[in-house]
Write a protein that binds this DNA or RNA. Structure first.
Length: 443
RNA sequence: GACCCUAUCGUCCAGUGGCCUAGGACACUCCCCUUUCACGGGAGUAACACGGGUUCGAAUCCCGUUAGGGUCGCCA
């Protein structure tokens, strides 16, 4: 039982990380962390033309964004360096030699490619998730021998994948269910090489909500879309965990330490999961509400910077706090708070039409400005009390003051709670903005 | 077409023979809170694919059908 778990994520760099791949990486990572094992990243870049350094960078960025750190692999190193298949030629060569010496290989007549001769029998895969699954290799027509090396000397996935898993001492191979039919072929390779294979666990695929296959273009398919869409990585990670796995009670929002403590392969589902971005959005909102102010500020920062909103934290924090319980994506934030940072904010035409153009609106604006101008304390509670007092004394509804004031100081019909918004704005700016509005719409 | 996997509300999950007139969450509808927009609270609509078995008893076990998905590359 002292077996040290070693698992890996072995993506082919294609320029983006698919949600399915990310989830595979996540399950491997979780499994490693749960069992105190080692999580390895290996880049399967045997297809030379298609793989670029930028594409590899995308893999790193996506994994790191999700918080999936690897213990061995590119940029980290490890006992089994290098972690790029393109740099492991000598190793493959020696394994190829072993197969050849064992009489397992032959060269194709026409092309000259090298094939591995399957043993013609039933091979059983004892999958940790799917259970025992038998594949019959008896018919050569149905399962022709597998090509492992091209005529130009380059290697085929099946071969290098198995060699690396042997070399890197993998104990468990957790991968997408699309690999299940490949597994008996890989098992034949292990046997021919005289190596005890790792345990296999095939996790269900992720499909679109309607059940169709997720392609690059579909919403939520690329990890980049979350980075660019204003998601909190911890929220996305939590949502991904629940795609094909559940803690078995009804908890859904689970902190990372809980996820690690509770995750295990025996609780992984067999049914394919349909992806629902709406639920992912809900998780994001929940995480934003619950996260500490510092983290909230940290994640909002890039979005503010991009929108040209720069201000010291002391000024930013109270403004952002106003939206913390309301926002679902960080990308929404700049637009919602931009009016705080310029006196030249735009007036929403519909809001102006609906409230400022209303008969008596400007008079009431002047009245509330008068009331507020004499206040010593300018906090939400006082502001609310005074506004209601004024409305009451004039026999009008508070709304007749609230709406014009909101539009006057922010230019819009919707926003944070009025009194809290005014408190953050402060007395000076509040009065100036009302005055500015009065002047502007007086005619 | 062959082989393999799967089958509970629209979606994600719970349920491993009686506790199920099937539970939670998202989404949707309505109500409350809030004279903004949200959050929050409450209520509601909504599912065991179908047909045979096994059993005193089946969402749970077996068989078949159907449906969905996957794999059959000198892609990974």
């Amino acid at each position: 039982m002292s077996e040290n778990v070693r698992v890996r994520f072995a993506p082919s760099p294609t320029g983006y990380l698919h949600v399915g791949g990310a989830r595979t990486a996540l399950f491997n990572w979780l499994y490693a962390r749960h069992h105190g094992g080692t999580f390895i990243l290996r880049i399967e870049d045997t297809d030379k033309q298609r793989n670029t350094t930028e594409a590899v960078q995308v893999v790193y960025d996506s994994l790191r964004w999700l918080g999936l750190d690897w213990d061995e692999g590119p940029e980290i190193g490890g006992d089994h360096d290098p972690y790029f298949q393109s740099e492991r030629d000598a190793i493959y060569e020696s394994y190829f030699q072993r197969l050849q010496e064992g009489g397992h290989l032959y060269q194709d007549k026409d092309g000259g490619a090298w094939r591995f001769r399957f043993t013609r029998e039933v091979v059983e895969v004892d999958d940790l998730i799917c259970g025992p699954v038998a594949f019959d290799f008896a018919n050569v027509e149905i399962t022709p021998d597998m090509t492992i090396r091209r005529p130009d000397g380059s290697w085929i996935f099946h071969f290098v994948n198995v060699v690396d898993d042997i070399e890197m001492r993998m104990t468990h191979v957790i991968r997408g269910e699309d690999h299940l039919p490949n597994t008996p072929k890989h098992l034949q390779l292990y046997r021919a090489l005289g190596v005890v294979p790792p345990r296999f666990a095939h996790i269900p695929l992720i499909l679109n909500k309607d059940g169709s296959k997720m392609s690059k273009r579909d919403q939520g398919a690329s990890i980049n879309s979350y980075i660019e869409g204003g998601y909190a990585p911890e929220a996305v990670r939590n949502y991904f965990c629940l795609l094909g796995w559940s803690p078995k009670d009804d908890t859904e929002v689970l902190p990372l330490d809980q996820l690690i403590a509770r995750f295990d392969l025996d609780a992984v589902n067999r049914k394919g999961a349909h992806f629902d971005i709406a639920k992912c959005d809900w998780f994001n909102g929940q995480y934003i509400q619950r996260m500490p102010m510092e983290r909230y500020l940290e994640l909002a920062q890039p979005w503010l910077a991009q929108a040209g909103i720069v201000a010291p934290t002391e000024q930013l924090e109270p403004v952002l706090a106003l939206e913390k319980m309301k926002v679902t994506h960080f990308r929404e934030i700049p637009d919602r708070i931009s009016f705080f940072f310029t006196e030249d904010y735009a007036y929403d035409l519909a809001a102006v039409e609906k409230t400022l153009r209303k008969p008596g609106a400007l008079e009431r604006l002047a009245q509330i400005a008068g009331t507020y101008s004499v206040l010593e304390t300018f906090d939400a509670m006082t502001l609310e009390a005074k506004l209601k007092e004024l409305a009451g004394s004039l026999g009008v509804k508070p709304a007749e003051f609230i709406h014009p004031t909101r539009v006057a100081v922010s230019g819009r019909g919707v926003g944070p709670s009025l009194y809290h918004m005014l408190e953050v704005l402060g007395k000076g700016r509040t009065l100036a903005r009302i005055q500015q509005t009065l002047t502007r719409f007086a005619a």
